[in-house]
Design a protein around this nucleic acid. Structure first.
Lengths: 215, 215
DNA sequence: GTGCACTCGATTGTATACATTAACGCTTCG
DNA sequence: CGAAGCGTTAATGTATACAATCGAGTGCAC
């Protein structure tokens, strides 16, 4: 990373996402200085950025702490995500390019391979989540709104914090996989209503995953 | 303003909104230091905040400039606003409180008074815009989603930059006024579909105002 | 004459010292 | 014994000095 500030941002952000800094934990600037290996100035800048993206909460003269998400917050978040991702899917259905369709198709094929492999389940899930992200980002991109794209990116990553250390069942993953397939059909058919409905359902189902504690 | 950083933020932001810093103009930190009367550190923090809120664009080692909005950007912005404000109106219709309804009603009554007054037209429009903001913010609040509320706040203020130095026709204001009245009816009736439709139309009409140059 | 490279100036990025604030614990008074 | 006031301390907020970077202008070589 060229910039000290970007570096601090990346390090802290990654540490929040992977659970090194648990939700609710205090982030003291002095500690982050040695953790990141840069001075306080870029650390502070990184914290402000993270606050703007709702990863941390900053109170005046009281420092930063990793944001915690209540169940209601998550409901709120996923409601908005369903609305916006549904909107994106509808827009995408109207104007998606052949290349973008192909990209989604390829990701789904890769998912097939991952799920059919004999890799450890955690590895399978990790791979699946990566490909899942590809599918969604391609849809956002096809929707053709930079603003929508960045909003969704942020919402999804906020949701990821809540996901930390939560494992997915293979059954849940399989359901997602079916959603993706049908979404692809809807997009290929150029059916905006169908695509929007599928995407909204897909997001609502994802919300449920976070509600039911893993057994 | 207690904080130097908050102070700088408020000053710069206000100057962007009122056109003192025109879209596209470069914001040099040294200039802002004397403009705001604080040191570079809080000025930089303010600029980063403004960048996070899409008021300015920052390029590495090249400083900040007031963001410019193309026609397509504004289409994009208002599309999203219509979607989100429509969603907010629908949610509000389902759960708005009597006090909030009354607040909207009072704002509309005040609008009546403003439009019937003999104040200079610019003054009338300014007052109307303030009350317009009250109506919208009350709807957002009634929707009950903090996230939606902050997103809409940002979108609206981005739109305001484009409005700078653009005057509204009284005819346009009267149309808005009618929208508000009908929106109130829909909210009072608890009719989410009606409320959403009204709000979407209201926003689309507002977009048109920015497209047609003032005569 | 044109194109490239180099230097200089201006501006942003970073580190650090200092100021300010708020929380915590102690003392003291009721 | 409890509560309120005050001082200490540990953190954040601010200013400023220094470093790195970019762009423009100039001069040299081809």
């Amino acid at each position: 990373m060229a910039n000290a500030a970007d570096c601090a941002y990346a390090v802290i952000r990654a540490s929040i996402l992977d659970g090194t800094f648990a939700p609710g934990s205090r982030l003291k600037e002095a500690e982050l200085v040695e953790f990141c290996g840069v001075s306080r100035t870029p650390v502070r800048e990184a914290l402000r950025r993270l606050a703007a993206e709702d990863f941390v909460r900053i109170q005046r003269n009281q420092g930063a702490e990793v944001k915690t998400w209540s169940d209601d917050d998550l409901d709120d978040l996923f409601d908005l995500r369903a609305l916006l991702e549904g909107h994106a899917a509808a827009a995408a259905a109207r104007q998606i390019s052949a290349a973008q369709l192909e990209q989604i198709r390829a990701a789904i094929v890769e998912m097939d391979a991952v799920l059919a492999s004999s890799a450890p389940q955690a590895e399978q899930v990790a791979q699946f989540l990566r490909l899942n992200r590809v599918v969604h980002e391609t849809v956002w991109e096809a929707a053709g709104s930079g603003r929508l794209q960045s909003m969704l990116g942020r919402l999804v990553e906020q949701a990821l914090i809540a996901h930390t250390a939560r494992h997915y069942s293979l059954a849940r993953v399989a359901q997602s996989h079916h959603h993706h397939r049908e979404l692809l059909d809807a997009l290929a058919a150029g059916d905006a209503v169908w695509a929007e409905a599928m995407m909204r359902g897909h997001i609502r189902a994802a919300r449920l995953t976070l509600k039911v504690p893993p057994s």
